[in-house]
Design a protein around this nucleic acid. Structure first.
Lengths: 214, 214
DNA sequence: TTTGCACTGTTATAAATTTAACAACCATAA
DNA sequence: TTATGGTTGTTAAATTTATAACAGTGCAAA
């Protein structure tokens, strides 16, 4: 009869929104705000206040009537849910523009989630650091992944190297893969896979723009 | 009683999958294949064959029993649905790593969808070409958008410039925006907006990796 | 022929997700 | 004191999306 103690069955979309709420809340906090209403969060995220309240209900957080939610408390709670206590190490395979862009985005922002290695085949890149992240040869991938206890791999290699890269990562014992190439990959069931295809998204935007014309 | 002639109410997810089917089909075609079964498409995309058949039903395409779908025909049909006949011009605002990565991805691949301009504030970039795309000063944005009839804008600027960039694009009359910064933006109802946040996705992967441990 | 099989196309059902509806609460003002 | 208004938390309904079930079809083998 007690509240759930694990968060294993939170809806996927709720997990995504929690991450977004946290980012928005951190910004509010840095602006000196201490409390926030559900409709304020909703406005920022382009969703309804009901959805916000429902998500917070699912994680068992209660606000104060007419005062809203305590921003700091909520940030901490979301952290307890989505972060791993001991932190998770991440590697980027493919240090081209996209790989380096991702490193810039992340570096120094999420202390519980750190990019600790980059990999590439280009000898000019190997040995260098990009925003503080060292680039290794892909031939060392297996070794480094184990050495640094890397659990998540981001694939940003050219499309034709995607399949091979994924295999290498899986063989090295990676637990989660985020594939940014347009080529879908196959992974064993025990590896969590998320794929995002920028071309698809742009084509979708173009489609709805076209539709609005007709 | 006739079949639908417009595709305005295709599910959003179907639109996304159509784009992905096409990409997979183009690859198959270049490998010399002429026909494909629903379960083959499904395997590539990590979905079920039912879903594939359902999507194709929605767009009114019929395959041949025991022979599958004609790849070339299907590619053309998908093109008729999601592409705009006269093509759509796209601009990228923010020619950092991410912007340049996107240009590399797209250039020369989608003839009905072309990146025709980049914008930045950095004087070192302005006037240069990146993978054939010229970089203009952001002060010229309004002029160039109209001159080149650009309908879609991709935002890849640093987070703190996001809001301003979005405003500028909207004011210039853009019809669709794809926002890759972690900062949500507001746009009028007649502008189609798609936001994608790389940090959220990585945090999601990390969450499910953490969960699989517990 | 006939039977079985491997597909497609479609309708029916289920699952996931969002939205609506509303009771409960309490600060404030009349 | 009593009403008003704004906000939370929760249950119910609607919508969207995915899955299952199955009829229909025609090739291939017996």
């Amino acid at each position: 009869m007690t509240k759930q103690l694990t968060f294993k069955n939170l809806p996927h979309k709720t997990i995504e929104r929690l991450s977004q709420y946290r980012r928005a809340l951190l910004l509010c906090l840095s602006n000196g705000k201490t409390h926030i209403f559900s409709h304020e969060i909703a406005k920022i995220q382009h969703i309804t206040s009901v959805q916000v309240r429902r998500d917070l209900m699912l994680i068992g957080y209660s606000g104060t009537l007419r005062k809203g939610y305590n921003i700091e408390e909520l940030i901490n709670l979301i952290g307890n849910i989505i972060d791993s206590e001991e932190g998770i190490n991440v590697a980027i395979v493919g240090m081209g523009n996209l790989g380096r862009a991702l490193i810039n985005y992340f570096t120094g922002k999420r202390h519980k989630l750190e990019i600790v290695a980059g990999f590439d085949t280009n000898p000019d890149k190997i040995g260098n650091r990009f925003s503080g992240v060292e680039c290794y040869s892909i031939t060392e991938l297996n070794k480094i992944i184990k050495q640094k206890d890397i659990k998540v791999g981001i694939i940003t290699v050219p499309a034709d190297q995607t399949t091979e890269t994924a295999k290498t990562l899986v063989k090295a014992g990676i637990k989660g893969i985020l594939n940014y190439t347009p080529k879908p990959i196959d992974v064993p069931d025990d590896v969590y896979l998320e794929e995002y295809d920028m071309i698809t998204t742009l084509e979708k935007v173009a489609f709805y723009v076209k539709m609005s014309d007709e």
